[in-house]
Design a protein around this nucleic acid. Structure first.
Lengths: 341, 341
DNA sequence: CGTATAATTGGGAACGTTCCCACTATTAAT
DNA sequence: ATTAATAGTGGGAACGTTCCCAATTATACG
């Protein structure tokens, strides 16, 4: 007769045990699907009691005891950026099956915010972290003691799993594609974060020029910040040249789209007067006129792969070497590139 | 000498208490910032011990005891959709300050998935839920016993807080704007979800025609699914009319952008030959040529407001009536609308 | 039928907090 | 100086699981 009156609140496994005439241990076993070690009859009795009482498993209590939370923290510069929300989607979709939830944080390229999320991950004993670090260093990440995967291929994060795109290969193939279309004078709008990144693309540009015996012309390469204004400025500079390029490669689609818009506003016909190629393949590239030809990054797949590496670390038995997984970029032809006329 | 050897693992408040020469109760008080009831000296001793041991608060244990998790579940059809990721951003930014984390789920317009996330929210004793329900009913939501806010203005969710955009007002003003620009023959590409939604826009269209004594022409209104293909088809139908519209209003920007692209591919000059106006103001609208003129929804603000309503429910003392908060849409002129020539 | 073994089950202890209540110093009031 | 009130502190129970080990029951085998 004990818990007849007190239980206005949510029932616990003890209530279930009582109702089923077994011990809480047995209920726990049923809950964990420990099929092997509980008699079918008992199992039935327990499940019936569970349904009857409307029992719902308390994940919090379970977390405390098992020290496993089935929570993963995702830290990106900005989840509202279509690039990262695609990655997030892949991560979530893959982690959902084995029962993990994903908390997303907007690091905002801000050291304090990034650290705040890391702190949350530690305090809440998260099982894993996926992060595109902008201000956070390797040591800080390692110090959490939480399995972590770096989103993007970056130097200075030895010992951590990494998954991102092969920007060198992507940039190189983009340039080669323009070359094959007959272009020889190729402009390069090079986006730069505050933190040194994107070196790969610049290296690819240099390497490309070398391989094709093209004379490097410094005026064809313009460095700008990674945003719309940067793309505008980059294009304006290139258009102001006495000897204009016939094609332009931009470090990412934001830059490329802004550049294309700027060229169009200046009265140029893309691709007839000027070819443009970008990188990433974000959402809006299909919506412009013409559509933007670009080297697509496997964003969704990046998320999926990151999730898989994370799961290996979290649930894996034997610890293995850190892996560096660079997914290849792929050309998507839309309409912003034409043969040189 | 007790915990000298066992503590290879993370230190607990008991370890801290020992190191500081106080009881765990006192440490707990310090941790909770209960400044009033602990002497400055003791507080200092405790904080010093915390730093020395590298103690980190265990949120899980705290959750179990307090029955508060500081977690909120966000369920949208798709977080990779730029509309929802903006909303998510607003929600997160607002919830971050008071210490809440947001778990995002992609409902995918799938009953099972939506329910799975709801289950996670219950099992993990989440403090709040923000959802744009597609297949989930009011009763299910109320049954969770968790404070919930509906994203979007919807019928059939009485008793629940709601925050979204005033689509009727938005659509009406969009049409009025076209009218003021001299357009009289206005096409309407009406997006439809499987579940009845978007009625408001259709009503606004009807009401608009009536107020301006415009003869309703059924051929000017075409219903399509809410995606790019829908926008294409809608525009093709309108272009095929013997008596074409001079302007087109589309239910959202996805449709409008696809429609604009289709018109351009058909050789029309937007806005000279045809004006187009959309709704939502998603990311890509600024990147096309011309930019898409649209009725902007306050996406970020929707998230913020939803967060505020949720916080009121979660932390609020007195319970209040359910609120319905319809944020007004606002015209953003870009370049896809011109006066009728 | 008795014993050895395996299959089930039960009973605490533990996870690391918070909260209530009791207790001891300290201060204020008479 | 004595008592009353207050500020500060400590100790234990509780939150709801899981897990280890012991106890019980069923099965197998001779």
């Amino acid at each position: 007769m004990s818990s007849h009156f007190k239980t206005t609140a949510r029932p616990t496994i003890i209530d279930v045990a009582e109702a089923a005439g077994v011990s809480k241990s047995t209920v726990s076993r049923v809950l964990q699907g420990d099929a092997a070690s509980v008699k079918p009859d008992t199992r039935r009795a327990v499940t019936r009691a569970i349904r009857k009482l409307g029992y719902e498993h308390n994940a919090i209590a379970s977390m405390l005891r098992t020290a496993r939370t089935f929570m993963v923290m995702l830290i990106t510069p900005d989840i509202a950026n279509p690039f990262w929300s695609e990655v997030a989607r892949g991560l979530q979709d893959t982690l959902e099956r084995p029962g993990y939830s994903v908390v997303v944080g907007n690091g905002d390229q801000d050291s304090e915010r990034e650290n705040a999320f890391l702190k949350t991950a530690r305090r809440n004993r998260f099982d894993g972290i996926a992060i595109n670090p902008t201000k956070i260093h390797r040591r800080t990440l390692l110090a959490t003691g939480i399995p972590t995967v770096i989103l993007g291929i970056r130097d200075g994060f030895a010992g951590l799993d990494m998954v991102g795109s092969d920007s060198f290969q992507g940039a190189f193939e983009a340039l080669t594609y323009l070359y094959q279309m007959g272009h020889r004078r190729i402009g390069f709008i090079d986006g730069r974060y505050v933190t040194e990144q994107g070196r790969a693309r610049a290296q690819a540009y240099a390497e490309f020029l070398k391989q094709h015996n093209l004379e490097p012309d410094p005026s064809l390469k313009v460095e700008v910040p990674f945003d719309r204004a940067g793309g505008q400025r980059g294009m304006r500079v290139l258009l102001s040249l006495a000897h204009r390029p016939t094609a332009v490669f931009a470090s990412n689609d934001i830059l490329a789209l802004a550049a294309m818009q700027t060229a169009q506003e200046a009265g140029l016909n893309v691709p007839r007067d000027l070819s443009i190629i970008g990188m990433d393949d974000i959402y809006p590239t299909a919506m412009t006129m013409p559509g933007l030809t670009t080297m697509a990054k496997q964003k969704y797949e990046t998320g999926c792969q990151a999730a898989r590496l994370l799961l290996e670390r979290i649930e894996g038995t034997a610890l293995r070497e850190a892996r560096r997984c660079a997914l290849p970029c792929q050309l998507v032809e839309r309409g912003s590139v034409a043969p040189r006329s």
